[in-house]
Design a protein around this nucleic acid. Structure first.
Length: 313
DNA sequence: AATCAGTGCAACCGCAATTCT
DNA sequence: CAGAATTGCGGTTGCACTGAT
Protein backbone atom coordinates (compact mmCIF):
# COMPACT_ATOMS: atom_id res chain seq x y z
CA UNK A 1 0.00 0.00 0.00
CA UNK A 2 1.75 3.11 -1.19
CA UNK A 3 0.92 6.71 -0.80
CA UNK A 4 -1.60 8.29 -3.04
CA UNK A 5 0.07 10.06 -5.92
CA UNK A 6 -0.16 13.82 -5.96
CA UNK A 7 -1.60 13.69 -9.45
CA UNK A 8 -2.58 11.28 -12.16
CA UNK A 9 0.84 10.77 -13.62
CA UNK A 10 -0.43 9.05 -16.70
CA UNK A 11 -2.48 12.04 -17.73
CA UNK A 12 -0.20 14.93 -16.98
CA UNK A 13 2.34 16.38 -19.30
CA UNK A 14 5.97 15.92 -18.45
CA UNK A 15 9.15 17.32 -19.82
CA UNK A 16 10.13 20.82 -20.81
CA UNK A 17 7.65 23.62 -20.41
CA UNK A 18 6.37 25.41 -23.47
CA UNK A 19 6.20 29.21 -23.57
CA UNK A 20 2.42 28.92 -23.57
CA UNK A 21 2.45 26.91 -20.38
CA UNK A 22 4.83 29.38 -18.81
CA UNK A 23 2.53 32.23 -19.73
CA UNK A 24 -0.50 30.47 -18.33
CA UNK A 25 1.21 29.72 -15.07
CA UNK A 26 2.64 33.19 -14.75
CA UNK A 27 -0.64 34.86 -15.49
CA UNK A 28 -2.56 32.66 -13.14
CA UNK A 29 -0.22 33.18 -10.25
CA UNK A 30 -0.02 36.86 -11.07
CA UNK A 31 -3.77 37.13 -10.74
CA UNK A 32 -4.60 34.65 -8.04
CA UNK A 33 -1.37 33.74 -6.35
CA UNK A 34 -0.66 30.12 -5.63
CA UNK A 35 -3.76 29.90 -3.49
CA UNK A 36 -1.76 27.90 -1.03
CA UNK A 37 -2.46 24.75 -2.92
CA UNK A 38 -0.16 23.66 -5.67
CA UNK A 39 -2.00 20.43 -6.24
CA UNK A 40 -5.17 22.21 -7.26
CA UNK A 41 -3.40 24.98 -9.12
CA UNK A 42 -2.75 23.34 -12.48
CA UNK A 43 -6.40 22.52 -12.94
CA UNK A 44 -7.47 26.02 -12.06
CA UNK A 45 -4.83 27.47 -14.32
CA UNK A 46 -5.78 25.20 -17.16
CA UNK A 47 -2.50 23.39 -17.16
CA UNK A 48 -2.13 19.72 -17.77
CA UNK A 49 0.73 19.47 -15.33
CA UNK A 50 1.44 18.01 -11.95
CA UNK A 51 1.22 20.52 -9.11
CA UNK A 52 4.73 19.71 -8.10
CA UNK A 53 5.92 20.43 -11.57
CA UNK A 54 4.17 23.80 -11.53
CA UNK A 55 5.68 24.67 -8.23
CA UNK A 56 9.13 23.78 -9.42
CA UNK A 57 8.75 25.71 -12.62
CA UNK A 58 7.55 28.74 -10.74
CA UNK A 59 10.18 28.65 -8.07
CA UNK A 60 13.09 27.86 -10.32
CA UNK A 61 12.27 29.80 -13.40
CA UNK A 62 9.19 31.98 -13.55
CA UNK A 63 9.26 33.64 -10.17
CA UNK A 64 10.14 37.33 -10.33
CA UNK A 65 13.67 38.42 -9.57
CA UNK A 66 15.21 35.10 -10.46
CA UNK A 67 18.81 35.53 -11.42
CA UNK A 68 20.22 33.35 -14.11
CA UNK A 69 23.64 33.17 -15.63
CA UNK A 70 27.12 33.40 -14.28
CA UNK A 71 27.72 33.41 -10.60
CA UNK A 72 29.85 36.19 -9.26
CA UNK A 73 32.96 35.54 -7.24
CA UNK A 74 31.17 36.75 -4.17
CA UNK A 75 28.38 34.29 -4.79
CA UNK A 76 30.88 31.51 -5.30
CA UNK A 77 32.56 32.42 -2.08
CA UNK A 78 29.29 32.31 -0.19
CA UNK A 79 28.40 28.99 -1.69
CA UNK A 80 31.74 27.57 -0.75
CA UNK A 81 31.64 28.90 2.75
CA UNK A 82 28.24 27.51 3.36
CA UNK A 83 28.96 24.23 1.67
CA UNK A 84 32.01 23.88 3.83
CA UNK A 85 29.93 24.53 6.85
CA UNK A 86 26.67 22.76 6.23
CA UNK A 87 27.16 20.53 3.25
CA UNK A 88 24.69 20.15 0.46
CA UNK A 89 21.84 22.04 2.05
CA UNK A 90 21.08 23.85 -1.12
CA UNK A 91 17.93 25.54 0.04
CA UNK A 92 19.76 27.08 2.94
CA UNK A 93 22.59 28.17 0.73
CA UNK A 94 20.08 29.62 -1.70
CA UNK A 95 18.52 31.66 1.07
CA UNK A 96 21.81 33.50 1.30
CA UNK A 97 21.88 34.31 -2.38
CA UNK A 98 18.95 36.48 -3.39
CA UNK A 99 17.61 35.55 -6.78
CA UNK A 100 19.34 32.23 -6.91
CA UNK A 101 17.47 28.98 -6.57
CA UNK A 102 18.60 25.89 -4.78
CA UNK A 103 18.48 24.03 -8.06
CA UNK A 104 20.73 26.58 -9.71
CA UNK A 105 23.22 26.44 -6.91
CA UNK A 106 23.17 22.69 -6.82
CA UNK A 107 23.80 22.53 -10.54
CA UNK A 108 26.50 25.12 -10.32
CA UNK A 109 28.25 23.28 -7.57
CA UNK A 110 28.00 19.93 -9.29
CA UNK A 111 29.10 21.12 -12.67
CA UNK A 112 31.59 23.85 -11.90
CA UNK A 113 32.66 24.43 -8.36
CA UNK A 114 33.33 20.86 -7.41
CA UNK A 115 35.65 20.50 -10.36
CA UNK A 116 37.20 23.85 -9.76
CA UNK A 117 38.20 22.97 -6.26
CA UNK A 118 39.49 19.61 -7.22
CA UNK A 119 41.71 21.34 -9.66
CA UNK A 120 40.44 20.47 -13.07
CA UNK A 121 39.90 22.66 -16.04
CA UNK A 122 37.21 21.32 -18.36
CA UNK A 123 39.59 20.84 -21.22
CA UNK A 124 42.07 18.93 -19.15
CA UNK A 125 40.90 15.58 -20.26
CA UNK A 126 44.04 13.97 -19.16
CA UNK A 127 43.17 14.79 -15.61
CA UNK A 128 39.63 13.74 -15.94
CA UNK A 129 40.16 10.12 -15.18
CA UNK A 130 42.18 11.07 -12.18
CA UNK A 131 39.45 13.36 -11.06
CA UNK A 132 36.86 10.67 -11.37
CA UNK A 133 38.99 8.36 -9.33
CA UNK A 134 39.49 11.05 -6.75
CA UNK A 135 35.81 11.67 -6.57
CA UNK A 136 35.07 8.04 -6.35
CA UNK A 137 37.55 7.46 -3.61
CA UNK A 138 36.55 10.52 -1.76
CA UNK A 139 32.86 10.07 -1.78
CA UNK A 140 32.92 6.31 -1.53
CA UNK A 141 34.92 6.40 1.60
CA UNK A 142 32.93 9.19 3.06
CA UNK A 143 29.74 7.48 2.14
CA UNK A 144 30.96 4.36 3.85
CA UNK A 145 31.75 6.44 6.83
CA UNK A 146 28.37 7.95 6.99
CA UNK A 147 26.74 4.61 6.55
CA UNK A 148 28.37 3.43 9.70
CA UNK A 149 30.84 1.57 7.61
CA UNK A 150 33.84 2.71 9.50
CA UNK A 151 34.85 -0.78 10.29
CA UNK A 152 35.71 -1.22 6.69
CA UNK A 153 37.81 1.86 6.66
CA UNK A 154 39.73 2.32 9.81
CA UNK A 155 38.76 1.39 13.30
CA UNK A 156 40.32 4.44 14.78
CA UNK A 157 39.98 7.07 12.19
CA UNK A 158 41.37 10.27 13.48
CA UNK A 159 39.90 13.41 12.19
CA UNK A 160 41.91 16.46 12.78
CA UNK A 161 40.70 19.87 11.90
CA UNK A 162 42.43 23.15 12.21
CA UNK A 163 41.54 24.70 8.95
CA UNK A 164 42.46 28.27 8.63
CA UNK A 165 39.89 30.20 10.50
CA UNK A 166 37.92 27.17 11.43
CA UNK A 167 38.27 26.36 15.08
CA UNK A 168 39.99 23.10 15.55
CA UNK A 169 37.44 21.80 17.90
CA UNK A 170 37.24 18.39 16.41
CA UNK A 171 40.68 17.11 16.98
CA UNK A 172 39.18 13.99 18.19
CA UNK A 173 39.13 10.32 17.69
CA UNK A 174 36.00 9.16 16.07
CA UNK A 175 35.64 5.43 16.21
CA UNK A 176 32.38 5.58 14.34
CA UNK A 177 30.14 7.98 12.60
CA UNK A 178 26.44 8.48 12.87
CA UNK A 179 24.72 5.92 10.79
CA UNK A 180 22.21 7.31 8.39
CA UNK A 181 19.96 5.47 6.06
CA UNK A 182 19.02 7.86 3.33
CA UNK A 183 21.22 9.03 0.57
CA UNK A 184 20.38 12.57 1.43
CA UNK A 185 21.67 12.48 4.92
CA UNK A 186 24.49 10.21 3.97
CA UNK A 187 25.70 12.65 1.41
CA UNK A 188 25.27 15.58 3.70
CA UNK A 189 27.13 13.75 6.36
CA UNK A 190 29.77 12.87 3.87
CA UNK A 191 30.02 16.47 2.82
CA UNK A 192 30.44 17.47 6.39
CA UNK A 193 32.98 14.80 6.94
CA UNK A 194 34.71 15.86 3.81
CA UNK A 195 35.28 19.22 5.30
CA UNK A 196 35.39 17.82 8.76
CA UNK A 197 32.46 19.82 9.84
CA UNK A 198 30.26 17.81 12.13
CA UNK A 199 26.91 17.16 10.66
CA UNK A 200 23.60 17.69 12.31
CA UNK A 201 20.28 16.53 11.06
CA UNK A 202 17.80 19.25 10.29
CA UNK A 203 15.21 18.38 12.86
CA UNK A 204 17.81 18.23 15.54
CA UNK A 205 19.10 21.55 14.49
CA UNK A 206 15.63 22.93 14.89
CA UNK A 207 15.11 21.44 18.26
CA UNK A 208 18.18 23.14 19.41
CA UNK A 209 17.91 26.34 17.56
CA UNK A 210 15.49 27.83 19.99
CA UNK A 211 17.90 27.67 22.82
CA UNK A 212 21.36 28.07 21.49
CA UNK A 213 23.03 30.00 18.80
CA UNK A 214 25.96 28.10 17.47
CA UNK A 215 28.50 30.41 16.03
CA UNK A 216 31.67 29.24 14.47
CA UNK A 217 34.00 31.52 12.74
CA UNK A 218 36.35 32.82 15.30
CA UNK A 219 39.97 32.13 14.81
CA UNK A 220 40.49 30.97 18.32
CA UNK A 221 42.18 27.66 17.86
CA UNK A 222 41.42 26.25 21.23
CA UNK A 223 39.71 22.94 21.20
CA UNK A 224 37.37 23.34 24.08
CA UNK A 225 37.13 24.69 27.53
CA UNK A 226 40.00 22.64 28.71
CA UNK A 227 42.24 24.64 26.50
CA UNK A 228 42.91 22.57 23.47
CA UNK A 229 42.65 19.14 24.87
CA UNK A 230 40.77 16.69 22.76
CA UNK A 231 37.52 15.08 23.46
CA UNK A 232 36.57 11.59 22.67
CA UNK A 233 33.38 11.19 20.77
CA UNK A 234 31.60 7.96 21.17
CA UNK A 235 29.60 6.51 18.41
CA UNK A 236 26.06 7.67 18.59
CA UNK A 237 26.43 10.62 20.84
CA UNK A 238 25.71 14.15 19.94
CA UNK A 239 28.09 16.86 20.83
CA UNK A 240 27.10 20.45 20.86
CA UNK A 241 29.47 23.30 21.04
CA UNK A 242 28.71 26.79 22.02
CA UNK A 243 31.15 29.18 20.68
CA UNK A 244 31.23 32.64 21.97
CA UNK A 245 32.88 34.91 19.52
CA UNK A 246 35.64 36.66 21.32
CA UNK A 247 35.88 34.19 24.12
CA UNK A 248 36.18 30.91 22.34
CA UNK A 249 34.38 27.81 23.34
CA UNK A 250 32.68 28.13 26.60
CA UNK A 251 32.65 24.73 28.07
CA UNK A 252 31.42 21.74 26.29
CA UNK A 253 27.77 21.17 25.87
CA UNK A 254 27.04 17.57 25.39
CA UNK A 255 23.59 16.33 24.86
CA UNK A 256 22.40 12.91 24.09
CA UNK A 257 21.40 12.28 20.55
CA UNK A 258 22.40 10.40 17.51
CA UNK A 259 24.41 12.80 15.49
CA UNK A 260 27.19 15.21 15.74
CA UNK A 261 26.12 18.79 15.64
CA UNK A 262 27.05 21.06 12.88
CA UNK A 263 27.08 24.63 13.71
CA UNK A 264 27.26 28.02 12.29
CA UNK A 265 23.70 28.95 11.59
CA UNK A 266 20.57 29.34 13.53
CA UNK A 267 17.37 28.07 12.04
CA UNK A 268 13.89 28.20 13.29
CA UNK A 269 11.70 26.35 10.90
CA UNK A 270 11.57 23.11 9.09
CA UNK A 271 12.65 24.71 5.93
CA UNK A 272 15.67 25.90 7.81
CA UNK A 273 15.23 29.47 6.95
CA UNK A 274 17.65 31.52 8.89
CA UNK A 275 16.18 32.62 12.12
CA UNK A 276 16.59 35.75 14.18
CA UNK A 277 14.79 38.22 12.00
CA UNK A 278 15.98 36.91 8.73
CA UNK A 279 19.57 37.80 9.14
CA UNK A 280 22.27 35.26 9.45
CA UNK A 281 25.91 35.92 9.27
CA UNK A 282 27.96 33.72 7.12
CA UNK A 283 29.60 31.71 9.80
CA UNK A 284 32.81 30.97 8.05
CA UNK A 285 34.89 32.84 5.68
CA UNK A 286 36.94 30.48 3.62
CA UNK A 287 38.92 31.72 0.74
CA UNK A 288 39.02 29.85 -2.54
CA UNK A 289 42.39 28.53 -1.71
CA UNK A 290 41.28 27.32 1.67
CA UNK A 291 38.34 25.46 0.27
CA UNK A 292 40.46 24.02 -2.46
CA UNK A 293 43.03 23.01 0.04
CA UNK A 294 40.36 21.48 2.19
CA UNK A 295 39.02 19.39 -0.59
CA UNK A 296 42.41 18.30 -1.76
CA UNK A 297 43.88 17.54 1.61
CA UNK A 298 40.84 15.62 2.64
CA UNK A 299 40.94 13.82 -0.59
CA UNK A 300 44.37 12.48 -0.01
CA UNK A 301 43.36 11.57 3.48
CA UNK A 302 40.51 9.55 2.15
CA UNK A 303 42.70 7.70 -0.22
CA UNK A 304 44.72 6.69 2.74
CA UNK A 305 41.65 5.60 4.53
CA UNK A 306 40.72 3.46 1.61
CA UNK A 307 43.94 1.59 1.54
CA UNK A 308 42.60 -1.26 3.50
CA UNK A 309 39.36 -1.49 1.69
CA UNK A 310 39.65 -3.78 -1.29
CA UNK A 311 36.14 -3.06 -2.38
CA UNK A 312 37.08 0.44 -3.38
CA UNK A 313 39.21 1.24 -6.36
C1' DA B 1 30.87 16.57 -42.56
C1' DA B 2 29.87 13.07 -39.35
C1' DT B 3 30.35 11.12 -35.06
C1' DC B 4 31.37 10.96 -30.37
C1' DA B 5 32.07 12.57 -25.73
C1' DG B 6 31.57 16.07 -22.39
C1' DT B 7 28.90 19.71 -20.23
C1' DG B 8 25.12 22.32 -18.35
C1' DC B 9 20.70 22.70 -16.90
C1' DA B 10 15.71 21.88 -16.53
C1' DA B 11 12.83 18.70 -14.78
C1' DC B 12 11.61 14.49 -12.39
C1' DC B 13 11.53 11.32 -8.47
C1' DG B 14 11.23 9.69 -3.93
C1' DC B 15 11.32 10.71 0.69
C1' DA B 16 10.55 13.17 4.98
C1' DA B 17 8.37 16.82 7.40
C1' DT B 18 4.51 19.51 8.11
C1' DT B 19 -0.24 20.71 7.87
C1' DC B 20 -4.91 19.57 7.48
C1' DT B 21 -9.12 16.99 8.43
C1' DC C 1 -4.68 11.52 17.87
C1' DA C 2 -4.30 9.21 13.42
C1' DG C 3 -4.15 9.17 8.80
C1' DA C 4 -4.33 11.70 4.53
C1' DA C 5 -2.85 15.48 1.87
C1' DT C 6 0.46 18.72 0.75
C1' DT C 7 4.88 20.88 0.68
C1' DG C 8 9.77 21.17 0.45
C1' DC C 9 14.10 19.22 -0.25
C1' DG C 10 18.10 16.88 -2.24
C1' DG C 11 19.65 13.49 -5.54
C1' DT C 12 19.37 11.96 -10.07
C1' DT C 13 18.22 11.78 -14.89
C1' DG C 14 17.52 13.07 -19.66
C1' DC C 15 18.41 15.85 -23.29
C1' DA C 16 20.10 19.67 -25.99
C1' DC C 17 24.12 21.98 -27.01
C1' DT C 18 29.11 22.35 -27.89
C1' DG C 19 33.65 21.13 -28.92
C1' DA C 20 36.97 17.64 -30.18
C1' DT C 21 38.33 14.01 -33.16
Amino acid sequence: MGRTPCCDKANVKKGPWSPEEDTKLKEFIGKHGTGGNWIALPQKAGLNRCGKSCRLRWLNYLRPNIKHGEFSEEEERIICNLFANIGSRWSIIASHLPGRTDNDIKNYWNTKLKKKFLGIVPSQKKQQHQLQLQHHNLFSSLFSLSQGGCNTIAPDLELVTGLGEFPSLFSQRIPGFASTSTSTTATATAASALLQVPYRQPQQMMERSHTTMIAFGNSDPSCNSSGGSCTQISYGTELEYDYDVGRGFEGEQISIGNYATYGGLEYNSRSLRPGGGGHVETPLDYTYEEIKHLLCSNNSGCNTINNDNPSLP
